[in-house]
Design a protein around this nucleic acid. Sequence first.
DNA 1: GTAAAGGCGACCAATCTGGTCCGATATTAG
DNA 2: CTAATATCGGACCAGATTGGTCGCCTTTAC
Lengths: 141, 141
Amino acid sequence: MVAFTRPTVQMLRLSRKSDYALVALKALRALGPGDALSARELASRFGLPVDLTPKVLARLAQAGLVQATLGKTGGYRLARDAESITVAEVVRILDGDPELAPCREGILECNRIADCDLRHPLGNLQREMMNVLDRMTLANL
Amino acid sequence: MVAFTRPTVQMLRLSRKSDYALVALKALRALGPGDALSARELASRFGLPVDLTPKVLARLAQAGLVQATLGKTGGYRLARDAESITVAEVVRILDGDPELAPCREGILECNRIADCDLRHPLGNLQREMMNVLDRMTLANL
DNA sequence: GTAAAGGCGACCAATCTGGTCCGATATTAG
DNA sequence: CTAATATCGGACCAGATTGGTCGCCTTTAC
Ligand code: SF4
Ligand code: SF4
């Protein structure tokens, strides 16, 4: 019953969580020095999933990117300079360290993994890609 | 019954099809000028899925990366210089043009898409990423 | 004490990917 | 002619990941 189910490419894509995280971080960055924003406020302001947003923020807090204040008037604020927060770091926090080559997908392991002349070049590629994501900071995005 | 089901990150990853394509292309590159390899041979030599390999090769043939020879002694060979075949091109052929930002996931469309100051920066990032993949040719991988 | 906030774990539904199984046709070597 | 190859198409399903929700608990402001 859906009009256009354009199949979407999942590969080489940012996860939704990372996207949400970037949205939230960007909002926190625009905050005054003493202010804070609650997860609920962030969610309602940007239309993010209400129950998922706190989880994302919590991960960021664990990782030390944002600082959480408990209590009734609590909320989140940036814990570090916006210049030191990169897209790559956010991705690592929320999705884990990605591997470009699909050598191990879940339980499946590629049977050529022992002797494959593709792994190392792809590893280099991956590092280059992450470097790109690492050069993009919260400040200049 | 599986020992370590390490959850794998699907994001920022090459699809299996693209991986297979690279494996096959690399093998074709090592071929003599007049020789060719059949999909069946490629599959058995590298342990690729027998029924999927012809499909992948067919896509590459459509795109003009490899040349298919019909008939009993047919097979595939590279149709272009290895220097002109890039990882990015293979990905585009097999998975489509990836978008870094998950603005549209299938039917879902992000509700902030109209006014989002994240899209354009992420678009730039995406272009940079694809440039990285575009600089890696079949020759120097 | 109460309300509002964060933290955490478990769970379920939607979705995508990969892989398989079909079938039919054109082409070429031998 | 026969066999083996490529081409094209589609339908289908099982596995895995992702995203989203629910529920309960702790902490803090007022
Ligand atoms: S073929 Fe090589 S690169 Fe691709 S998955 Fe297997 S081991 Fe990794
Ligand atoms: S928030 Fe912006 S970048 Fe992220 S999906 Fe929505 S529109 Fe795209």
